[in-house]
């Protein structure tokens, strides 16, 4: 019984982790149809920002929830202005250019902090369930993920801003004709997506630690989740994270964590063979 409960909590933590690292990418991909290859590095920079500002004496929660999103959001603004804006409508070129940005960020962080693993121990301690224990912090990340997605839904469904965003997403020409400046919407979206990535990277940094090349481990999972999810930002990411996260943690339990990731990938490839438009291409089509 205790074991079943701990497995369930572990699955929830994995799903939340997956949803968290995919959220920023999903916002940018869902709104702008741009694949941001520098996404993993945005997460990495978010982690480093939180770490460094915490080591400089800042409160950990301030570092995670305030400093990291702002710093990465600013980086996103610079990247959008210098690179993305010149390449609208050239999807493959955007992918390549952001990959260049990703490599350059890895290089910069390596120069600044060295190619070593750094970390903070997860706060909040752990909770014991029978003979097993699970970190409170991992459950806390699950809670933050839920709040983030709920807030995203509220913004998209209930506010003027969300209405404009959805309009630009569905039909950009018509939105532009009605007086919405698509360039402004895109810039805002990109910065927002980057800021969410920064928050996500900072949130998971205490669990995983940070190293300049850690983006590569996130990027594959995040892409697979977003693409398996399909076009709907929230429902797609959540459903794909749920499915793939469950597969991942099941195989991790039965075999090894790496085989869990292999199973995640295999599941996603088969899923895309069956549903080329992703999960929300067939189910929950009207969801956000």
């Amino acid at each position: 019984m205790d074991y079943a409960l701990i497995v369930l909590l572990q699955v929830i933590a994995t799903v939340a982790n997956l949803a968290m690292i995919s959220a920023g990418l999903a916002v940018i991909f869902g709104m702008m149809r741009i694949i941001n290859m520098a996404h993993g590095e945005f997460l990495m920079v978010g982690g480093y920002t939180a770490l460094v500002s915490h080591q400089a004496g800042l409160n950990l929660w301030v570092a995670i929830f305030l400093v990291a999103p702002i710093v990465v959001g600013l980086i996103g603004a610079v990247v959008e202005r210098l690179v993305i804006r010149r390449l609208y409508g050239r999807m493959i070129d955007t992918m390549l250019a952001t990959w260049g940005v990703s490599l350059a960020l890895v290089g910069l962080i390596t120069i600044a902090f060295g190619n070593t693993v750094a970390g903070i121990s997860p706060p909040l301690g752990s909770v014991e369930i029978g003979a097993y224990a699970i970190g409170c912090y991992e459950l806390f990340v699950g809670g933050v993920t839920a709040i983030l997605f709920l807030a995203g839904w509220l913004v998209l469904a209930r506010t003027q801003l969300g209405l404009i965003a959805r309009a630009a997403m569905q039909n950009r020409e018509m939105a532009a004709a009605l007086g919405v400046d698509p360039a402004k919407v895109y810039a805002t979206t990109f910065v927002l997506g980057a800021a969410i990535s920064g928050l996500a990277g900072a949130l998971i940094a205490p669990i995983t630690g940070v190293v300049p090349s850690i983006g590569a481990t996130y990027i594959a999972k995040a892409f697979i989740t977003v693409i398996s999810g399909g076009t709907s930002i929230l429902a797609g990411t959540l459903s794909a994270a749920g499915l793939l996260g469950a597969v991942n943690s099941m195989f991790s339990f039965l075999m090894t964590p790496v085989l869990g990731e292999v199973a995640l990938l295999a599941c996603a490839v088969v899923l895309l063979r069956l549903l080329p438009q992703g999960i929300t291409g067939r189910y929950f089509r009207r969801a956000l």
């Binding site: 594959a220 790496v258 996603a268 063979r273």
Partner: peptide, 27 residues
């Protein structure tokens, strides 16, 4: 087979191939 018979678009194809390579690396 999985990519072309799934009729994945260019972008999805790029992501899948990259992911396969990274998974091989991790393995």
């Amino acid at each position: 087979y999985f990519m072309f018979w799934g009729r994945l678009s260019d972008v999805y194809l790029g992501v899948i191939t990259l992911t396969v390579s990274l998974i091989l690396f991790r393995f």
